[in-house]
Design a protein around this nucleic acid. Structure first.
Lengths: 139, 139
DNA sequence: TTCATTGCAAAAGCTTTGCATGTGT
DNA sequence: ACACATGCAAAGCTTTTGCAATGAA
């Protein structure tokens, strides 16, 4: 997903392409793995961006709407996001002791879910599987 | 899980069996399906309980610790809980339009997860699968 | 010019906590 | 009596929002 796609989406919604929005978009594209809003905000600040928290709060929902990022979990009552990489959907195992997040992907799991949805006559859009337990170092 | 178990747990932790805690426990046992803290608090109020929100906030973590309830999702930035019924673990399909929650259970899914965890050398404690999409009435 | 966007600060939630009071053991 | 539990109100945090100023089209 490149900036062109982002511009297109923004314009198609009657919104405007602005410097701040582009900065936020660019930064999100650079982040590997999870991040929360404040981490993103701090990264932007560190790079000299004059963006405000309010704008970040206002922009993230747009990125979710595009499908560029998704909310993967909520810990400590604040949201964590992760960039969606085409063809690289994965789920998470989260260690209850050290907090480590192990990403994994299983085609079988995906297929199984599709079958379950079909059985319930449910049109699946996305899903979120989090397995909690103890990683090899903590168990 | 009955009140005896609850008492036992409370005492074994050096805590005290109190009227308020028992009221909260009883109410949670009566709730079918999801609830959030405020719903629980309101139900208690409606029944004439003099319990405060603070006590409910302080008691829910205990119930989670016992394994009596679990946090199933976070919507609107506040936690939703659901009673754990022995032998009736299930996952959720959540409709993006009407918000309906369809509960389902798949033994195959459970087994598959166990296999995936084994592969990662991860000791699974619990998991949480939410499939988002559109239910048969909304799709 | 027009209308969306932004920043600021205030407001709005939900949740936690300090402290004095109440209560189980 | 001694802790723990509770309620209240205040504080803490994250997130949202009103409004005036700014900027894109």
């Amino acid at each position: 997903m490149d900036r062109g796609f982002f511009q297109e989406f923004i314009l198609s919604k009657g919104l405007r392409s602005t410097k701040k929005r582009n900065e936020i978009f660019d930064e999100v594209m650079e982040i590997e793995g999870h991040f929360d809003l404040d981490e993103l905000y701090m990264r932007l600040k560190q790079k000299g961006s004059k963006v405000s928290r309010a704008s970040v709060y206002r922009t993230l929902p747009l990125l979710v709407e595009i499908g560029l990022i998704e909310e993967v979990e909520r810990v400590d009552k604040h949201a964590h996001y992760e960039r969606v990489r085409t063809g690289s959907h994965h789920d998470h195992m989260i260690c209850l002791k050290c907090g480590k997040v192990i990403e994994f992907y299983s085609p079988t799991l995906e297929t199984l879910q599709d079958e379950l949805c079909e059985r319930e006559n449910f049109k699946k859009v996305r899903h979120n599987l989090e397995i909690y337990g103890y990683c090899k170092d903590c168990k």
